[in-house]
Design a protein around this nucleic acid. Structure first.
Lengths: 334, 334
DNA sequence: CACGCTAATGCACAGGTGTGCAAAACGCCG
DNA sequence: CGGCGTTTTGCACACCTGTGCATTAGCGTG
């Protein structure tokens, strides 16, 4: 059972000063005599005192907490982004509150309510799309909102996204240039804006070039999906010789279907392109040609947008679109 | 700049009751008339009111926050554990505060101080070992401490660990039974208790059986380390035919060194065993025989230990040791 | 020494909530 | 209608901190 915690008053008593002085000693830029501060710091150290950020947040309306709202945390790309975000947040003196969702909009709503309950300075949404009445409530409570890889923009929010469609077009161009004649697209059924953007870019480029493609999708955004769709595709009579997967996880599954199950050569028999540049894409067993997600840049932009006070009157949604770069490895014939 | 946030007083005014009534309406088990509660809930919904957990935590000394302190978050096993922990925490009505460290004890200390600053109900430490004076401060502030895979026990803490040494012995037995004659151990230089435990078990079993092993270690706990040490080991004149890696990441690197670089067959030319059962171990390109980390059980035990009030007088450290199970796949000859 | 200016300090209030205690309302029975 | 037990309600205090304002201490100058 929690005993009384050590508070500023205890430190003040020990140091022989007023509690106000203790508060000032821990507030940068406040007016405190040099030796008073020293005495206070000594007392604080002796008692193991830490300023109560909760009480401080109550006054300053600035808790230093930032909610990170994400589904399927246990996935290579997602964790890379979360790691980058928490690191940036920490460097900015804030700390991340990790809230899982199950991708349903309702659970995102619940997560946002939790963020409000903790009076989070900001919420960074990686999955799902909250109801617009709820985002308004967030903004009304002075919370900043950052949406990553979402499609809809909301007034007063910052949206960070990639040029997914462009990547899809590049993938088509690369496979065409490699001499692939029967192209396929492998996607999941998650239907997130980023996946759909990549797929759309690929489809559009194919249509513009007047070539037909095999357009497949099923299941979750996972290795297993790639394995399933890969075996399905590569056992067809008109076996494709160039495949764009909307995700590296899927691409790894497709490659394993080709090599391990069907004894096909990659890129000899079929070229494969992924997206995300997860660590496994760089492993020698795969050497997957893919697109790099600018994880660090996303994190930097997201956190940078939090530190300055936002222009409160300007509620037009801000957008940042980051370019994606292709990474050439060995899964596409050259 | 954050406008005044909506508080219980606003709800009270709108509902025509006292602020106390609002507080009671949101406190389970409090005495409120049925229609009063209904009126309050309607008003709260209209205003988008959420109880301020910070202020509540100030009173009840129970914030619902739990610090998760970890290094190298962006790693398959670590993220699996973090995902399981946050999920369990959420189910228990708590929320995880993710704090990165760089594995140095000093940065762990800093993380714990941050946890104190936010008056976290508990801290779950996955990496590094805090100074014992600091853990005492934590306990004095009523914070519960859970150490996962640490070696030293501290009074008043819960320690959860695996039977790593046993796994090391099992690995030796399995490789011996598979007919491997020149055995090697591949480890990183991280020197964490769990890695050392596995290595020790393997060494001890070999010593007990009177066989010499190649005992190697270098670098970080990563794929690259496995790749490096694997190529090094497998180009020796007395090439080993059975390798125990203290981590799946390392094992994947070793397998890629064998297959991709040196055109060796796994398990034909060399058998490989890993540890963790990360998702990639199950991918068909690897089909790695390994040990399952009971991630869910760890998370369950950690979170379960938080919900009941801890026995405050009994400060003897509690320990939970979970068994590890071997998972047979295709990387060991049978 | 008087004076004026600056730096340091303390008082008191505010921020949003939970809870003990007393008062009020309510329902029931005679 | 009176009396009594139970439920509901509100007041006031507490939790811990930041900060405006007034007061005091310190110090250099004339």
């Amino acid at each position: 059972m929690a005993k009384r915690q050590v508070s500023a008053r205890d430190v003040a008593e020990l140091a022989g000063v007023s509690r106000t002085a203790v508060s000032r000693a821990f507030t940068p830029g406040a007016s405190v005599a040099k030796d008073t501060r020293a005495r206070i710091e000594a007392a604080a150290k002796q008692l193991g005192y830490q300023v109560n950020h909760l009480a401080r947040g109550l006054i300053t309306a600035n808790t230093g907490l930032v909610a990170l709202i994400a589904a399927e945390v246990n996935t290579p790309y997602r964790t890379a982004l979360l790691a980058a975000l928490t690191e940036r947040l920490q460097a900015a003196g804030k700390v991340g509150l990790l809230i899982n969702t199950d991708r349903s909009d309702d659970s995102v709503a619940q997560a946002l309510r939790k963020a409000i309950a903790y009076r989070t300075d900001a919420a960074i949404v990686l999955s799902g799309m909250p109801d617009s009445s709820l985002t308004e409530t967030c903004l009304r409570n002075g919370m900043q909102l950052v949406l990553i890889n979402r499609d809809e923009a909301r007034p007063g929010t910052l949206m960070i996204r990639l040029d997914d469609a462009n990547a899809g077009r590049q993938a088509f161009a690369a496979l065409s240039a490699a001499g692939c004649r029967r192209l396929a697209l492998v996607n999941s059924r998650a239907g997130t804006p980023s996946l759909e953007g990549r797929a759309r870019g690929f489809r559009d480029a194919a249509a513009a070039a007047g070539v037909a493609i095999l357009d497949t999708a099923s299941g979750a955004t996972s290795y297993q999906t790639g394995l399933d769709l890969g075996t399905h595709l590569l056992t067809r009579p008109d076996r494709p010789d160039g495949i764009f997967c909307t995700t590296d996880l899927i691409a790894c599954g497709v490659m394993d279907a080709a090599r391990t199950r069907l004894r096909l050569d990659v890129p000899g028999d079929v070229s494969v392109i992924g997206f995300d540049d997860i660590p496994q894409a760089g492993w020698e067993a795969y050497a997957l040609t893919t697109f790099r997600q600018p994880v660090e840049e996303i994190a930097r932009a997201a956190v940078a947008s939090l530190t300055p006070e936002p222009v409160d009157e300007d509620t037009t949604p801000r957008r940042i679109t980051l370019p994606v770069g292709m990474i050439w490895r060995g899964s596409v014939r050259r």
